[in-house]
Amino acid sequence: MGVPLPRPAALNTRLETPIEEWPYLDEGTMQKTRSRKVCMTCHWFRHHAGVNCIPLLTCQVHQGLIAHGEHLTSRCQGWTDDLVRQKGWAPEVA
């Protein structure tokens, strides 16, 4: 197993930032779509329980928050299919 590579300081700081402090993704990142390729179906989409158990919708690729409702109507250029859909429920191990 290899040695992990050091991260740039800016990235390291951002990854240590609590999710509640992540910025919301803007219109420059998000684009409207009418297909099934929306944030909610993306491999990188996550939701977390925030303050008072209000869900926070996040994009792990952009390290940003997604406004409620946008996860159903928008996506970014980094959209990828879920690994279960790509390879099946239990892919063969070579």
Score class of each variant (00 low, 15 high):
D81Q: 14
E92R: 11
V3H: 05
E20S: 09
R7V: 08
L56S: 02
W22C: 02
T33M: 03
R14N: 02
W22P: 01
T33V: 13
A94K: 07
L65K: 11
D81P: 08
H68K: 12
I54H: 14
L11D: 03
P18G: 00
P4I: 01
E21P: 01
V51Q: 13
H48T: 13
F45M: 07
C59S: 06
V84K: 11
C42L: 05
V84I: 13
Q86A: 13
R46W: 06
E70D: 15
R75Q: 12
M30V: 06
E16W: 01
C59V: 04
L56T: 01
V84M: 13
D82M: 10
R85K: 14
T80Y: 04
E70W: 14
V3C: 07
P91Q: 08
L83D: 14
A90K: 14
V61T: 12
Q86I: 12
K87Y: 15
G88A: 09
Y24F: 14
M40H: 11
T58I: 14
N12A: 14
H68C: 06
P91M: 07
C42F: 05
L65H: 05
R34L: 12
T41S: 15
R14K: 13
L56V: 01
V84Q: 11
T33R: 02
T73F: 05
A10R: 07
P91I: 08
A67D: 10
P23A: 01
D26G: 08
V51W: 07
L5W: 00
N12Q: 12
T41V: 07
M1T: 09
G78K: 13
N52H: 15
T13E: 12
A9E: 11
T29V: 10
T33P: 04
W89E: 11
C59R: 04
M1Y: 04
L56W: 01
A90C: 12
H48W: 15
N52G: 06
S35K: 10
M40Y: 09
V84G: 00
V38N: 04
P91V: 06
L25M: 10
E27D: 14
P91Y: 07
K87C: 09
V93S: 11
I19H: 01
V84C: 07
T41A: 07
